[in-house]
Simulated assay, not measured.
Amino acid sequence: MAIAWLRKMFGVSAVTEPVSNQPVYHLTERQNASEDTHGATNSETTNAKTKRYREYLLELDHAFCQSLFGTEHSYEMPTETQRENAKSYAKQLLSNELNSEKIPRKPSSLPLLLKLLKMEMVNNDTVAQFLIKDPALTSQVLKIANSPFFRLSNQSVESLDEAIRRLGIAGIKRVVSAATMMPVFQASGGNKTLNETVWRWALCSGASLEALSIIRDQDGPSNYLLGLIPELAMLIVNQELDRLEGSLPEEEKILPMQRFKVFKRVAWKICIQIRKEWGMSEEFDQALYDMGDAMRLRKYSIVYDAIILAQYSAVEASAKPPISIEKLSLLTESDEFVNQTVLLSLKSKIEG
C-alpha cells in the first residue's frame, strides 16, 4: 500500500521492489541487533558505530552548509572565541522567548488552510468552493501548482478546478500548504539567496515527511505543513544570530557550520513558538520535541529523518553527495530502499 502510494504521489518508476521487512530501531537498538546477529567477536562496538554516525552526519552537514552559506570559511576551524560565542548564542536562544515581532506574521490564509487540512471525505467541488473564498490564495495555488516541484505534466494548470482534478484532494492540500507558507519565506529578512535555498529545502522536507509518514503508518493531514516549519525556524535563527553578533569583528563571528549547529540546538523551541504565535494545534508539539531530542542526542525522529533526507537531496542537486545511500541510512530510521525511493522522487521534482 505504501509503495503504491509513493508511485502515485511521486510518479517514480524505480519503485519496483518491496520495502524490507527488517525492523527499524533507535541507534542503540540497531547496535544491539547487530551484535545479536553477528556475535560479539565480529560486531562493531557501540562506540565505533556512534563514531561512524557522527562522522557521516558531520560530512553531510558540512556539504549542506556550503549549499546554504557558500564555500567561504567552509574549511576553517573555529577559534576558542568563536566556540564560546556559539555556546553563548545557543544558551540565549534556549533561555529566552523571542519577542513576538521576531516571529513572522501569521499568514492570512493559515486559518483557511488549517480548516482544509481537517476536511475529510470531501469531493472536488466542495474543496474548490472552499478555496475560492480567498482569491489571493487561489492565485498563489495556481502559481505553485505550475511550479516544477508540483506539476505532474508539461501542461499548465489554468484553473482551480483543473488543479484539484489533476492533483487530487491530498495533492491540493500540499499545494495550499506551500502556497500559504511561501510568502512567509520570501518576506523573511536577510539574504534573498539564502531564503530561496531554505525554501527549496523546506519543500523537500515536507515531501519527505509526508512520504515517511505514509510508509511508517503515521499519516496525518498536517504532516506536509509540519515539514515546512523547521526550515522557517532556520531563517529566524539566522536572523537572530546576525543580531547577536552585531558589530563584532569578523574574526569573532561564528562560522557557517556553527550557525547550523546552533540551529539544531534550538530549532525545536523556535518551532513550538511559531506554532503558538500562529495559533496552531498542539498536535505538532510531540513531533517537534522528538525532533529536538534527535538533533541534540543523536536519536531518530521522523521529522529529523525528513530534514536529513531533504539535506541530502539539496546537496545532490548541486554536487556529489559526501556520503553514500548506505551511510545515509545509518542516520535515519529508514532502510536504504525507502531512502532511495524518497530521494528519487525529490530529484525528479527538483529537476522538473
Rank of each mutant, 00 (worst) to 15 (best):
Thr45Asn: 08
Ala86Cys: 05
Ser100Met: 10
Lys87His: 07
Leu57Met: 00
Ser108Ala: 03
Lys51Arg: 14
Lys49Gly: 08
Thr71Ile: 07
Leu93Ala: 03
Tyr75Ser: 08
Thr46Pro: 09
Glu97Trp: 11
Arg54Gly: 04
Cys65Asp: 02
Met77Leu: 15
Asn85Cys: 08
Leu58Ile: 09
Ala63Cys: 03
Pro78Val: 04
Tyr75Leu: 09
Cys65Lys: 03
Thr46Arg: 15
Lys49Trp: 12
Cys65Met: 09
Ser109Asn: 04
Gly70Met: 10
Ala63Gly: 01
Pro104Asn: 07
Asp61His: 03
Lys106Gln: 15
Phe64Thr: 00
Leu58Glu: 08
Ser108Trp: 02
Asn96Phe: 15
Lys106Met: 08
Lys91Met: 00
Phe64Arg: 02
Ser74Leu: 06
Lys49Met: 11
Ala90Thr: 03
Thr79Ala: 00
Asn85Ala: 08
His73Ile: 00
Arg83Asp: 03
Glu80Lys: 08
Leu98Val: 07
Thr50Gln: 15
Ser100Thr: 10
Gln82Leu: 05
Tyr75Lys: 13
Ala63Tyr: 02
Ala90Pro: 07
Ser74Cys: 02
Ile103Thr: 09
Asn96Leu: 11
Ile103Tyr: 05
Leu60Gly: 00
Asp61Ala: 01
Ser95Lys: 07
Phe69Ile: 05
His73Gly: 01
Leu58Ala: 12
Lys51Trp: 04
Glu59Arg: 14
His62Ser: 14
Thr71Arg: 09
Tyr89His: 06
Leu94Pro: 00
Thr46His: 15
Glu76Cys: 09
Asp61Pro: 05
His73Arg: 12
Glu76Tyr: 10
Ala48Pro: 12
Ile103Gln: 09
Pro111Glu: 00
Leu93Tyr: 05
Lys51Asp: 12
Leu112Lys: 11
Glu84Gly: 08
Glu55Asn: 11
Arg105His: 06
Lys106Val: 11
Leu57Phe: 01
Glu80His: 09
Glu84Val: 03
Glu101Asn: 11
Glu84Trp: 03
Glu80Met: 13
Gln66Cys: 06
Glu76Thr: 05
Phe64Pro: 06
His62Gln: 06
Lys102Thr: 07
Ser100Glu: 14
Asn99Lys: 12
Pro111Ile: 05
Tyr89Thr: 00
Pro111Met: 10
Glu101Lys: 14
Tyr53Cys: 04
Lys102Glu: 07
Ser88Gly: 09
Pro78Lys: 05
Ser74Lys: 10
Gln66Ala: 02
Leu68Thr: 06
Ser108Gly: 02
Lys49Ser: 14
Thr71Asp: 05
Met77Ile: 11
Glu84Ser: 10
Lys91Gln: 00
Gln92Pro: 01
Tyr53Glu: 10
Leu93His: 09
Ser100Tyr: 11
Phe69Gly: 02
Pro107His: 15
Ser88Leu: 08
Leu113Lys: 00
His62Glu: 01
His62Ala: 02
Thr46Gly: 14
Lys102Tyr: 06
Leu60Trp: 00
Leu93Phe: 10
Ile103Lys: 02
